[in-house]
């Protein structure tokens, strides 16, 4: 079946009590943005590796198990390998030249540039993974709304995230229903196979539209949109440790920027 447990794929969040879980989601969002900017600013493979090591320590502190992280990032890791392999093939600049295969020239600086980019991609993926791993979708949306996202946009986001697993379960069920009527999805000519997917697509779209329609009625019947402003049961509050974490995050960005752009250290 393979797709039975899509929730693990869609929702990376894992409940936990580490300080990374408890920290205000707004601080985490700012931290992730800052660390992403930092990953783009750093162009030296050593400093990027240092950043990656720092992010790995954070992963460790969030108690993300190795197998779960591998599962969540398996596509990113393939992508990183691809970058390292392809970069030198398409970038012939610089010396010394390590090897020549016909028109393809493999140079040392190009290999390093490939590695640097791969590490950068790794940093970005891991840092966003920490956010998704330690923050529930509910907290994430609430933080975004608190940071100025319009409430209805936030609700739309929350609903789409909430319905992803439901949606994939519906698709599985539809596939089963058509198979039970003797359809063989991957048999026949290309035309026949693409026609087969119509049998999956139509009920999927129809049931998505039907549930969207029902959902909007359910929202309205619970007085959604009755008032423009809205009160909240739980207001996220910045605590002392959140403020401390935020200042660490700011320092993490400002110090390297100072060293790189003011003092001219080649970071």
């Amino acid at each position: 079946m393979g797709c039975q447990n899509m929730t693990g794929f869609v929702d990376l969040y894992s409940e936990g009590g580490t300080f990374l879980h408890r920290i205000d989601a707004r601080v985490k969002i700012v931290a992730v943005l800052f660390l992403s900017v930092l990953a783009f600013l750093l162009s030296n493979v050593y400093s990027l590796t240092l950043l990656l090591a720092f992010i790995f320590i954070l992963l460790f502190l969030a108690r993300a198990s190795l197998s779960r992280t591998w599962f969540a990032l398996r596509f990113v890791i393939r992508f990183m390998v691809l970058i390292v392999v392809l970069w030198p093939i398409f970038d012939p600049s610089g010396t010394p030249v390590w090897a020549t295969f016909g028109p393809v020239k493999i140079t040392e600086p190009a290999v390093w540039r490939g590695v640097t980019s791969a590490v950068r991609v790794g940093c970005l993926a891991c840092v966003w993974y920490i956010l998704m791993f330690t923050t529930s979708q509910r907290d994430l949306v609430r933080a975004l709304v608190k940071m100025g996202l319009r409430f209805d946009f936030g609700l739309a986001l929350a609903i789409s995230l909430r319905f992803l697993p439901t949606f994939s379960a519906t698709i599985d069920s539809i596939k089963d229903a058509e198979r039970a009527r003797g359809m063989e999805l991957d048999k026949g000519s290309l035309l026949k196979r693409s026609r087969n997917y119509v049998a999956i697509l139509v009920p999927t779209i129809v049931s998505a539209l039907r549930s969207a329609d029902t959902l909007s009625l359910a929202l309205h019947s619970r007085a959604y949109g009755a008032r423009a402003d809205r009160t909240y049961l739980r207001e996220p509050k910045m605590r002392r440790q959140d403020a401390a974490a935020l200042s660490v995050v700011i320092a993490l960005l400002v110090v390297p920027v100072f060293f790189k752009f003011v003092l001219g250290v080649p970071l």
């Binding site: 519906t170 069920s173 539809i174 089963d176 229903a177 058509e178 198979r179 039970a180 009527r181 003797g182 359809m183 063989e184 119509v198 049998a199 999956i200 697509l201 139509v202 009920p203 129809v206 049931s207 039907r210």
Partner: peptide, 19 residues
Amino acid sequence: AALSRTVGYAFQNPDHQLF
């Protein structure tokens, strides 16, 4: 497909098979 010749199964939710 071969088994469906002998065992037919009508799903709980009709909307999952009509297209």
